[in-house]
Amino acid sequence: MTRQRRRLPLRLRLSFCLLGVIGMCAVAPGVVVAVAPGAPSPSECSLRAADGTYRDRLAPSAEHWFGTDVQGCDSFSRVVYGARHSVLIGAGTSLLVLTLGMVLGVAAGWRGGRLDAFVRRAGDVVLGVPLAIGMIFLLTLVLGGRRSTLVMVLAFASLLWPTVARLARAATLTIKPVSFIEAARAAGASDLGICMRHVVPTALPAVAAFSSSMAGLLIGAEASLSYIGLGVDRSVVSWGQMLDAAQPYFVQSPHLLLFPSFFLAAASAGFLLLGESFGAQHLTLDQRR
């Protein structure tokens, strides 16, 4: 038992450390970049230095901690600025899916009947589409060429809500016949009031655990999409596109691939460990499709 109690905070501490670093990069990249002597902004790139030497794909050095990329940009500042996009994809999608799934799931479980049948059927259809295939379909054929961070978040969310809705619905059904719900109703509480005060808090632990580890998997999934040419617009600095651009130079300049990969893995692991400490181990099954 003591072992158990000691173990839990360790995962959580590790998760907080990872998410803290990544979060700082995402919120205030300018401050983080100011620590390093390299270029202060990710868009300040030049192929030639002042003395005329080429400065593309330089190895990591005291001036450029993570080296420079194909365009001669400082990799460290690009990696730091790239955090925001990945965090928005992971956390943004998860929060949206959590809200959407919770509303639909609780409403379906509480009301039952036709609404319930509709939410379940719609969820079945969406779950019948593998995530990657659904994303490719939406991003190429439906949403056209504009791929902002927001568009990616909405596309992911439209494919991921059913699992959360299922969890929320199941929790609603277990609590609905419990006596204190009846008591609350006898005391004159409205349906909405009961749902907000009693039903949503019951469903929240499972849903939150699921959502936070989903955020971790999404960060990786988004980078994979970049790798097959469906990343966010070039105007956004993102790890996925750095990796995509680094791929041909893997042998000569492995640092271009390694540094963004480590940050990506750190962000992903941070969210996964967070979900893990919420007790999400048994839920990760449904998240991969």
Binding site: G220, F250, V251, L258, S261, A265, A269
Partner: peptide, 30 residues
């Protein structure tokens, strides 16, 4: 369960889930 091996395997599992596939692929290839 609860011993060092268990924690090690958990850590490896989280690492395997969070590493980008193309990095793992490229490294194995190399």
């Amino acid at each position: 369960s609860g011993r060092h091996v268990d924690h090690l395997v958990l850590a490896l599992c989280v690492a395997a889930l969070s590493m980008p596939l193309f990095l793992v692929g490229s490294l194995l290839q190399r």
